[in-house]
Simulated assay, not measured.
Amino acid sequence: MLCIRLIWSFCLILIFLVGTGEAKAGELSQRLANFPQWEQLTSVEQAGGDLVYPDWMAGSWQVTSTLVDLVAPLAPDIVTPGFEANRQQLNQPVSFLVRFMKEKTPITGLKLIPKIVNKSSIIVADRAFNSLNLARAYLGDEVVLSTKVDPDSPNRQITFLLGNRQLVSIVTARAIETPENSKFITSEVFQQLFKGDSRPYFNTVESTTAYHKLATSNPAILAEQVTAVYLSPQDPDYFAAASRPVALYRYRLEFSPTPQD
């Protein structure tokens, strides 16, 4: 059960990782509007470099994340373990701190910079800080020991857990969309490996998030996020799923600036 809770809870963590290509106009927006009619992975490109955020995301934020819907598209034939148990999280807000900051060292390997970004002030996420806070908010300080981002690649992250367990997350692809100055949409695909039990557990997750900067209000940013879980080739139901998602989770995210900012 811990393994499954980690998989769905950690989907949000990885929105703070790497960036890739510009999506076709409106493709990601339409994908969110089509929830839960998702038939396969969205169009993405190979990940390269770090994800650059709009200037208006700079600073420290108190994020409130609320699961507002969950769907098992292939039920009752295929339902992931723990899916029904996750219903207890519906409409239960979870809060944690995140921060986005100006990159102090030159960034290499970027495939693009969003149109709405000031190229003289590159904003990136504090990935280790954000991931650790999110993980502990969902699983508890006693379960989540630490989080480490590969110094050679922002695509790879390891979360160390109680009982000599690890969750390894590797971003493989991403797309972005910038429909207007106050909106920013990302979609990424990543592989997850849970190690520590007798048998490692693999899966693929797609996370699509639309951020919207509000004019003058608190929260200052609202976001809609949908995460889709796909079976790995090691799963006995992989071919039966036929590249379709086996679980979909929809979240509402509220970003409020912290006092120090």
Rank of each mutant, 00 (worst) to 15 (best):
G48W: 08
R31W: 04
S29Y: 01
E39Q: 09
P54Q: 09
Y53W: 14
L51D: 08
N34C: 05
L32Q: 04
G48E: 12
T42C: 12
L51W: 08
A33I: 06
P54M: 06
G49S: 02
V44S: 13
L28E: 04
S29L: 10
P54Y: 08
Q37R: 08
L17C: 12
C11Q: 13
L32V: 01
L14A: 02
G21V: 11
I15E: 06
V18N: 11
T42W: 06
V52Y: 07
E27L: 09
L41Q: 09
Y53I: 10
Y53A: 12
E27V: 05
R31P: 04
L17Y: 12
Q46E: 15
Q46W: 06
T42V: 10
F16I: 00
L51N: 14
F16A: 07
L32K: 07
V52N: 08
E22T: 02
P54C: 05
C11D: 13
V18T: 13
L17P: 00
S9T: 13
A47P: 11
L28T: 03
L32T: 02
L12S: 08
D50L: 08
A23L: 02
I15N: 01
E22N: 03
S43A: 14
V52W: 06
K24F: 00
F10N: 10
A23N: 03
V52Q: 09
L12V: 03
L17T: 15
L14Q: 12
L28C: 02
T20Q: 12
T42D: 11
G48A: 15
T42Q: 13
A33V: 05
C11R: 07
P54G: 07
G48L: 10
Y53P: 02
S9I: 05
E45L: 14
C11S: 15
L17H: 15
D50P: 00
Y53V: 09
V52G: 04
E22M: 03
T42G: 15
E22D: 02
G26N: 05
S9L: 07
S29W: 00
S43W: 11
R31L: 08
E39D: 04
L28P: 01
G48Q: 14
K24Y: 01
Q30E: 15
P54F: 06
T20M: 09
D50H: 12
Q37A: 03
F10G: 02
Q37M: 03
D50Y: 12
L32N: 03
V52A: 08
L41R: 13
T20V: 07
N34D: 11
N34Q: 11
E27Y: 09
S43N: 15
A23W: 01
L32H: 05
L12A: 11
E45C: 13
V52M: 09
L17R: 14
K24Q: 07
Q37E: 05
F16E: 04
Q30Y: 09
F10D: 04
P36A: 04
F16V: 00
R31K: 13
F35I: 02
Q37S: 05
V52I: 15
F10E: 07
L28V: 02
S43E: 14
N34S: 14
Q30C: 10
Q40S: 06
S29A: 14
Q37L: 04
C11V: 06
E22G: 00
V18K: 10
I13D: 13
E39A: 04
L41D: 02
F10C: 06
G49V: 01
I13W: 00
R31G: 09
Q30S: 15
S9M: 07
L41A: 06
V18E: 11
D50W: 10
A47E: 10
G49K: 08
Q30G: 14
V44I: 14
